[in-house]
């Protein structure tokens, strides 16, 4: 019985790109679209792996010219010192310009109040949106990926934000073919996600293929940690551990790098990129599920934070 008009062939043509080449090409296209259409783009750069990959793609997109925009980091005051060092070395190496907005400044002058749980990730939103407004950025590159979380699965590559940085799912524009519509009113801006279609594994494979340097905390190392909310948190000045939370030394690594107060380490012996990739391919927990307390607050946690102007 015939069920096909024509049978599919099972071989790829020699012109089929590898998945990493296809993703790289798409991301470079996004960077160039923004550079071509916006006045003042900025790239959110924390020294975390997704922002490092973004910067690497931006450097390739405009070479041999320099990247035609600046970088912005929202420092929670609880960032890992190794990551801040890495951030500053990277900025110096490529002669980039970095703006830093500090949550600590907001706490010191009373514009923000410390949360009872000591978590500062939700406090980033105000310094971020203030920096965007004061420095008049009209496009903000973020490292968000659609595979990270259900609320992000429907995020656009160009995500329109109103003058309060708020995200309204009903106002988002359909994105067809490769046509990104970045038009916005004065005071509004567009969050742009060049890694939208990458998965955690793609990011790691690309890091390996391109030989991209990362902060050492992404690889297995010995660290003093304690258990809270099912995660290993770093003992430190930020507020942990409490009296009933014993500290122990374990061999761990980080899968994501955020605020120390809510970013958990995972037990790991992976000291090399290949070992990390093997571990991720075999992993039974998502990146955010394993290591981010801020996303566990509620099933709709990310959706709520996005609406308020978080990444």
């Amino acid at each position: 019985m015939t069920t096909s008009i024509a049978p599919a062939e099972s071989t790829d043509s020699p012109y089929a790109l590898s998945h990493l080449d296809a993703l790289e090409s798409e991301s470079v296209h996004i960077f160039r679209e923004v550079a071509g259409e916006f006045e003042r783009p900025v790239l959110l750069f924390s020294g975390g792996k997704d922002s490092i990959v973004m910067l690497h793609l931006a450097l390739k997109a405009f070479a041999p010219a320099p990247v035609p925009f600046t970088l912005l980091h929202v420092d929670t005051g609880h960032n890992f010192p190794e990551v801040l060092d890495f951030r500053d070395r990277t900025v110096a190496e490529h002669s980039l310009r970095l703006h830093v907005a500090k949550v600590q400044d907001y706490i010191d002058d009373g514009r923000l109040r410390e949360r009872p749980d000591g978590t500062r990730n939700p406090l980033q939103t105000l310094p971020l949106t203030d920096a965007i407004r004061e420095l008049r950025f009209d496009a903000v590159f973020g490292g968000g990926r659609r595979d990270e979380e259900k609320a992000r699965a429907k995020e656009r590559v160009f995500s329109l934000r109103d003058e309060f940085s708020q995200w309204d799912p009903r106002r988002q524009r359909p994105e067809l073919w490769q046509l990104y519509n970045g038009r916005h009113a004065p005071g509004e801006h567009v969050r742009v996600f060049p890694l939208s279609n990458w998965t955690e594994l793609d990011v790691w494979q690309y890091i390996a293929r391109e030989g991209i340097a990362l902060p050492e905390i992404y690889f297995a190392h010995e660290r003093e940690v304690f258990r809270r909310g099912g995660m290993w948190l770093t003992a430190g000045e930020w507020g942990g551990p409490k009296a009933d939370e014993p500290v122990e030394t374990r061999t761990v690594r980080y899968r994501t790098v955020g605020d120390m107060s809510c970013t958990g380490a995972v037990d790991s012996d992976a000291t090399t990129l290949d070992a990390v990739i093997t571990e991720i391919a075999a992993s039974r927990l998502t990146e955010r599920g394993a290591t981010r307390a801020d996303d566990k607050l509620s099933e709709a946690a990310m959706e709520d934070r996005k609406r308020e102007g978080y990444f």
Partner: peptide, 14 residues
């Protein structure tokens, strides 16, 4: 089968 780095290097995207 579980994915390995060798498997993953040369795949295409659909």
């Amino acid at each position: 089968d579980p994915l390995t780095p060798e498997h993953l290097s040369a795949t295409t995207l659909l």
